Computed example of a mutant assay.
Amino acid sequence: MSRIRGFEAKIQKELLQTHRNGWDENCEKKSEGQSCYTKDDAEKQQIAELVSKLPRLDKIFTVHRKIGEGTFSSVYLGSLRAHSPLPDASKRWFAIKHLVPTAHPARIEHELRCLRDIGGKNNVIGVDLCLRNLDTIVFVMPYIPHRKFSEYVGEMDAVELAAYMRALLIALRHVHSFGVIHRDVKPSNFLYDRENRRLGLHGSSFLSYTIREVASKRLYRAHEPPAPQTLADLLGTGPLQRAAEALGRRLVTSSPRRGLCLRKLCARLRGPPPPAAPGAKACALCRLPRPHCLCRDEAVPAAEWREGAGVAGFPDCAFALAARLLEPDPRRRPSAAQALAHPFLAEARP
């Protein structure tokens, strides 16, 4: 029943948000005197074109609306036509992923094989059906109701965060056991149905690897790497340059950065800093009062922790694990299996 109530609440919220958006926000007039052409109209046209190119899809599913879009695909919410008379809470829902026609056949075949062999267990989303007509291909997968990561991350406590991280690492450990890495691990690819504690990793960017490729330093090369300056702000330029040197590369930056303290940063994101006392000493690096400083203390190793200590409701070992997982050198960064044995995740198990 909790799953049904959670789904009903999500549907009602989405309908309310659509109503609030209103006609005016979605309306885009091509020129003066022409009728409004809304985003809903554009989605309906895309859905109509999809089912016209793939008639079998229309016979099996009702395609309701677009729920996602990326470089290589668009994703739609669908339900079985046989379930049309049922209330929404009793229907079985699917994510229908339409691959762009320009995708290379080898890429499509590889992704489908990975979804078939790896998905469906250990928090990795599988595939229920694949339909193809000429260059129109869709993967039909289970749908997990979810919210944007930014909407709930600030509400998560240590217990929920540990469960979230454990589920993600279990999924990655499972993927790695097949000799495959996921090159695009990010919140939008790890769906979280918070109400019912369902999680699932999308496998849209699987990459097979061999022992030779690992030895040649190709492992954990990012599919969409963050900008080096973004990493430099968080980690500092020193760790990035040392990792590059260890991999036979050289990283040149416009200016050196010291990096931020994860513990201080978490405390700042969770609430305003305490007021600085009159006459309080300022940080020699950032010149801010000590309570406002986010600079990393090089004398305290980020990957070590103190028993019984914590920040903003999180134990110190949580920050130590985060520091280890952010290690830029892949040979020093723990594997998913090793991370699961870390005290923050091991001790918090129910």
Rank of each mutant, 00 (worst) to 15 (best):
D40W: 00
V175L: 05
E195Q: 09
L326T: 05
A312R: 04
E69Q: 10
S150D: 06
D58Y: 00
G236Y: 10
L80K: 04
A9I: 04
G236A: 12
G279T: 13
C27Y: 03
V214G: 03
R242T: 05
R194S: 15
I11L: 12
R166K: 13
A89N: 11
P289S: 05
G271D: 07
R263L: 11
C317V: 11
P87W: 05
L269R: 08
P315I: 13
T102F: 04
P256L: 06
S204P: 06
F314S: 02
C114R: 02
C283I: 12
R249D: 11
V51F: 04
A267D: 07
R218V: 08
G6F: 09
R270T: 13
Y209P: 06
S74H: 08
E298S: 14
R198G: 09
F139W: 02
V51W: 01
G279W: 15
L247I: 11
Q338D: 14
E155C: 11
A171R: 01
Y37V: 03
A167S: 13
R296E: 06
P272Q: 03
A106Q: 11
K10A: 15
V180C: 11
E195D: 11
P273Y: 04
G33R: 03
F314H: 06
A299R: 14
N123I: 12
E8K: 14
A309W: 14
A312Q: 07
S90R: 07
V180G: 09
I181R: 12
G70P: 03
I47P: 00
L321K: 04
K29T: 08
V124W: 03
E32M: 15
P226H: 01
F139C: 03
F206S: 01
E327I: 08
F7E: 00
L345R: 02
L134C: 11
R268M: 04
A167K: 09
F61N: 01
L172F: 13
R257F: 04
C295Q: 05
E14Y: 08
I170M: 09
R198A: 13
L325I: 09
E111F: 01
P315L: 15
D128E: 15
S204E: 10
G279Y: 10
R81E: 01
G259I: 04
A106R: 12
C36A: 07
E69A: 15
Y220V: 08
P105K: 04
K186P: 07
R250L: 09
V138C: 07
A318G: 04
Q338S: 14
C27F: 08
F61W: 09
P330S: 08
D316W: 02
F139M: 05
A42R: 00
K59D: 11
A162F: 09
L112C: 05
M165L: 15
S255H: 10
R250N: 09
P85F: 03
K30A: 06
A323K: 13
S335A: 04
E155V: 12
S208A: 15
F344H: 06
R173A: 09
T237A: 07
C114M: 07
P315A: 15
S74Q: 15
A103Y: 00
Q338K: 14
C114W: 01
R197T: 13
L294N: 04
L321G: 09
W305P: 01
I211L: 13
R290G: 02
R3E: 07
L269T: 11
M165G: 01
